[in-house]
Amino acid sequence: MSGAVWATSGALFAVGLATVVLRRQMLAMLLGVELMVAAADLALVRGACRFMDPEALAAVAVVLAVAAAEAVVGLSLILRVLRSGRGLDAGELSELRG
C-alpha cells in the first residue's frame, strides 16, 4: 500500500520522460513535461503526508504555479513557431531565427 503512490508517481514520471524524449511533436513534448511535473507533485504530496512536513505542500503550490506559468510560455512559443509556418517538429527546429 505505502509503495503504491511512489510507484504511480514513478510510472507517471517515466511516461512523461518517455514522451518528451521519444516524441517529436512540440505539443506532445509539452504534455510530457506536464506529466513529469504532475508526477513530481504527487510524490511531494505523498511525502508531505508520510513525513508530516507542511513545507512540502507549500512546495507543491509553488510547483503548480510554476508549471502553469511554464505552460503559458511554452504554448505561446509553440503558437509563434506554428504561425511562422515551420511546423511543430522539434527535430527541424535547430536554429534560433525570427
Binding site: 524524449v21 527535430g91 535547430s94 536554429e95
Partner: peptide, 13 residues
C-alpha cells in the same frame, strides 16, 4: 552542441 532538441534531451536523460 548542434542545437537539436531531441538529441539534447537524450543526453540529458
Amino acid at each position: 552542441a548542434r542545437g537539436r532538441l531531441n538529441e539534447a534531451l537524450w543526453w540529458m536523460a
